[in-house]
Amino acid sequence: MAQGPIYLDYNATTPIDPAVTEAIGPFLTDGFGNPGSEHHYGAGPRAAVRRAREQVAALLGGSVEGVVFTGSGSEADNLALRGAVLASGLDRPHVITQVTEHPAVLQACQALRRWHGARVTLLPVNSEGLVDPGDLAAALTPRTVLVSIMLANNETGALQPVAELARIAREHGAVFHSDAAQAVGKIPVDVTELGVDLLTVVGHKMYAPKGVAALYLRPGVALEPLIYGGGQERGLRAGTENVALTVALGVAADLAAADLAHGGHHTVRELRDQLHARLAAALPGRVTLNGPAQERLPNTLNLSVRGTIGHDLLAAVPDVAASVGSACHSGIHEPSPVLTAMGFDRDRSLSALRLSLGRWSTTEDVDRAADLIAAAATR
């Protein structure tokens, strides 16, 4: 990245940490064995998978048995939603999520409605993108099987009151799932403190490669598998384990735990606020924050620059790599559904930028990016 544009798109994906890359190597060469094999060549990979499960569990403050490795965050979300609904055995089950949820959850809910007769409730959000716990309490019914509310929004960084929402759901007998893809590694996440039943973790959001993720299950939660086969992952995700990527997620979890323990998230927050302040000073009266001022990810800055179109502004600043919203919406020049759901008008939504920082962001990066964006906006 030192030779390329300033990278401010860590919420889309993170570079692979060199320590993760180093850890993968042996399992692409000598450590090729099948973890299910009982002989010499299976022993090392089997131990590596077990170690990775321990590392992910430690980061989340949960049990080792609760970690199920998957191929993506979308797969983990689908396993959580479809798995919980089908395991309930109810006819016309009720599922609750919210309007600014990740498409993996929203589309899974729509599929449950089409193929299994589920009734789906989408909770609204306020102007900061937050769900009102009272709305959840009012929406719950005796037939509510599952509630799925993301921990952190991928566009604004808004942190939902998941602990309170999970408590309300479980008091009514519903399983609670949270997609924590954007939160794990950026802030401390403890499944016991949150009180969740299911939680999604994604490798490429925390300096591991794409193609590996995990779903955490609280002991006792019943799920129907998405993929049937040889019984891997306690029968919840069949298929021979991808040892190299599983190891990568485990090492990334260790690195994230160390970074959080040393206050890395506080350093990133300071850089984010420095970027915001510099842009606001350079463009007086034109910069508006989208999302909560406090209850958001420490690395995420979503703001609108009055008098610009976000896509055009970024196109005018090729030395800065950033986003106008979720990477899932890239190339669609329409207002972000997240910002629209928050009640923002078309002009404010179309002028939005998502600037997300990470492990290798520097003060120099922040200052130069602010100068380049401000100069382009002034032009």
Rank of each mutant, 00 (worst) to 15 (best):
D135N: 13
N153Q: 08
D135H: 13
M150V: 05
E155L: 07
A137C: 12
R143H: 10
N153M: 00
T144K: 14
V162W: 07
L136Q: 07
M150C: 11
A139E: 01
Q160R: 09
N153K: 02
L151K: 15
T144E: 03
I149G: 10
Q160L: 00
R143M: 10
L146K: 08
A139D: 03
G157N: 07
A163K: 12
A152R: 08
Q160T: 02
P161M: 02
V162R: 06
E155D: 08
G134L: 12
V147M: 04
N153P: 09
N153L: 01
E155Y: 02
G134C: 04
A138G: 11
N153H: 09
N154G: 12
L151V: 12
V147Q: 04
L146T: 00
V145R: 05
P161Y: 02
P161C: 02
I149L: 07
T141A: 06
P133V: 00
G157Q: 01
E155Q: 15
V162N: 11
L136C: 04
L136I: 11
A139Y: 09
Q160F: 12
P142G: 06
N153R: 06
A152W: 02
S148K: 11
Q160A: 00
L146F: 05
A158K: 05
V147S: 02
L151Y: 06
N153F: 03
T144A: 05
Q160Y: 10
G134D: 10
T141N: 12
N153I: 00
V147P: 13
V162Q: 07
N153V: 00
N154Q: 08
I149N: 14
A137N: 14
D135A: 14
M150D: 14
D135F: 12
A163V: 06
T141Y: 09
L146N: 10
Q160V: 00
L136M: 10
A158C: 03
V145P: 13
A152S: 09
V145E: 05
G134E: 12
A139G: 01
N154L: 11
P133Q: 14
T156R: 07
L136N: 09
S148F: 09
A158R: 03
E155K: 04
A152E: 03
L151R: 13
A163W: 03
N153Y: 01
T156Q: 09
V147W: 01
G157R: 05
V162H: 05
P142K: 04
L151H: 15
M150K: 11
E155F: 00
T156K: 15
A158P: 11
L146Y: 07
P161L: 03
T141G: 09
G157D: 04
P142S: 05
A152T: 07
A158V: 00
L140F: 06
P142H: 05
M150H: 15
P161R: 12
P133S: 11
L151I: 00
G157W: 04
A137F: 08
G157H: 02
L159I: 10
T144M: 05
P142Q: 06
P161A: 01
